[in-house]
Structure formats: structure tokens, C-alpha cells
């Protein structure tokens, strides 16, 4: 019972962590309000589904999702966002438009019916007498690996150092010879790939429909703001707080009430810690 609750919490936290990670980089670090973030998650899920249907391999679909997500991110940055770095309101409007175009485009192409995704690892595993779906354990592991890999890139590589420099002070970064536009482009491409990866990984658990992204946009912002914009640990803290509290409350009170209670708790936190739980 307690173990299952803990695992359910870990699953919820992992889902939030995966979908919010890309946003934490784009919004939390680069301060770009990308309203099409949810649609990148959708694209990842659709790619995984399509590749699985045609090749039979879910993991090939995950790889394809990362590539497609990166490509879409690249087109988005080159075609649109790079002209709008100095106009935050412009970015909101433009990316919101893109999100609508992607949503309706997928609707026209694939129709409103859900896409089928086969769970790559069927069945459940018994842990201390409790059966638990195997794929959920894979998802939790994938979330841990993804955040670890992102942290390594941010803290241990030249690119991470450059990105952090650009975020701290763009002019000085350019003075010491860092091409800030190039760094921003790679960061956006990476964040988009992460969002698509999230979509592919959660696809076996949830409905895969053109409008699914909308369900993940608000929680992603929520996680980043409560956790603390500007730090990777903030995303972990935000996901753990929101996912953990919600799942725990789900066991005690009706789900409708638990969602409201989590929102109230988040408002209280932001009131007393305006910069989030673990700010940069």
C-alpha cells in the first residue's frame, strides 16, 4: 500500500519532471514564454506512435521523437523566435499562434481519434508483494536519467558554461567571444527535443490526441514557477512538490478537491517565496 503510493508519487513526479524540463530551460533560464511547449510534447507522442505503428519498435519511436522535436525547435527558432528575443509579448503571441497551427494541423492530418501506442514493456513486476506496472518503473528511471543528463550538459560542458554565461550577462558573454545567438538556438533546439522526448515516453500511459498538449502546458509553467525559475533543481523541487502533494491528496480526498488544494498550496508558496522553492 505505502510502496504503491510511493511509486505512484514517483510516476506523477516523473511525468511532470519530463514535460516541465524543456520549459525550465526556455522559460526558467532564457526567459522565453514558449506557449507551443505543449504541442512539442504532442509532436513527440505522435511521432512515437507513428514510428511504432510502421516499424514495430517503440524505442525507435522515442529516438525519432527526439530528432523530430529538435527539428521543430530549430525551425521555430530560426523562423520565428530569433526575431523576437527582445519582444517578450511578441514571443507569447507568436508561439501561441504556432501552438494553434500545430494543434489544428494535426487535427486535419490525423483526425480527432486517439493514436494507438503499444506499451513496450507489458505486465507488472512484484515488489515486496505489490504488483506494479513495469513500464512505470522504466518511466521513472528515464526521468532520472534525463534530468541527470541535462544537469551534466548544463554544469560540466563547454556549451552549458556558455549558456549560463549568456543568461547571466549577455553583453559580457559576447565580449568574451561567445556567440549568444548560436547558444540560444542550441538551447531552444535541446529544450524542444526534451519536450518531444517527454511526449514519447508518457505516450503509452495516456491518450494521444492533437489537443493533449494543452493538458501539459499549464502544469509545466506551474512546476517551473513553484519550483523556482532559473535552476534545474527548481524543476525537481516543483515536480516533487506538485506531483507528490497531488498524489498524496488523491488518496485522501476526491480528486476534484485535491486539484484545488494543490493550487491553493501553490499560491501560498508563491506568496511567501515569490522566487519559488529553490531559486537560482
Amino acid at each position: 500500500m505505502y510502496l504503491e503510493a510511493a511509486l505512484n508519487i514517483a510516476t506523477m513526479v516523473s511525468i511532470l519532471l519530463l514535460v516541465a524540463l524543456g520549459l525550465a530551460i526556455v522559460f526558467g533560464l532564457m526567459n522565453i514564454l514558449n506557449m507551443a511547449h505543449g504541442e512539442l510534447v504532442t509532436i513527440g507522442a505522435f511521432t512515437a506512435s507513428l514510428v511504432q505503428v510502421h516499424s514495430g519498435s517503440f524505442w525507435l519511436g522515442v529516438v525519432a521523437a527526439i530528432i523530430v522535436g529538435a527539428l521543430v525547435g530549430w525551425v521555430l527558432e530560426r523562423g520565428l523566435i530569433r526575431y523576437l528575443y527582445d519582444r517578450p509579448m511578441g514571443v507569447i503571441l507568436a508561439t501561441w499562434g504556432v501552438s494553434l497551427i500545430i494543434q489544428q494541423g494535426l487535427l486535419l492530418l490525423f483526425g480527432p481519434s486517439p493514436q494507438i501506442v503499444y506499451t513496450p514493456i507489458e505486465g507488472s513486476i512484484t515488489l515486496f508483494g505489490n504488483p506494479y506496472p513495469r513500464y512505470r518503473l522504466v518511466l521513472i528511471a528515464a526521468a532520472v536519467l534525463t534530468i541527470a543528463a541535462t544537469a551534466i550538459v548544463m554544469n560540466r560542458t563547454r556549451f552549458g558554461l556558455d549558456l549560463r554565461t549568456v543568461i547571466q550577462n549577455r553583453e559580457v558573454a559576447e565580449l568574451v567571444g561567445i556567440d549568444s545567438r548560436r547558444i540560444f538556438m542550441f538551447a531552444l533546439v535541446g529544450a524542444s527535443a526534451l519536450a518531444a522526448l517527454a511526449g514519447a515516453l508518457v505516450a503509452p500511459l495516456i491518450k494521444v490526441v492533437p489537443t493533449m498538449g494543452a493538458d501539459y502546458l499549464a502544469p509545466s509553467f506551474f512546476v517551473v514557477i513553484v519550483g523556482g525559475a532559473g535552476s534545474l533543481m527548481g524543476v525537481v523541487a516543483g515536480s516533487a512538490f506538485i506531483g507528490g502533494l497531488r498524489t498524496l491528496l488523491d488518496y485522501q480526498v476526491p480528486t476534484t478537491l485535491s486539484q484545488a488544494l494543490v493550487l491553493i498550496a501553490a499560491v501560498v508558496i508563491v506568496r511567501f517565496r515569490p522566487r519559488g522553492l529553490l531559486p537560482a
Binding site: 506523477m12 508518457v202 480528486t255
Partner: peptide
């Protein structure tokens, strides 16, 4: 009986209540 809001992404806790 349990009634959920729209847009729930994890039914794990609900199924735990069913098991109980």
C-alpha cells in the same frame, strides 16, 4: 464511487482505492 475532474493523467491513486 469516485468522480474526477477532466484532464487527469494518472489514475494510479484511484486504482489503489479500488484495490482497497
Amino acid at each position: 464511487a469516485e468522480f474526477m475532474p477532466f484532464g487527469v493523467s494518472d489514475f494510479g491513486p484511484s486504482f489503489a482505492k479500488v484495490k482497497q
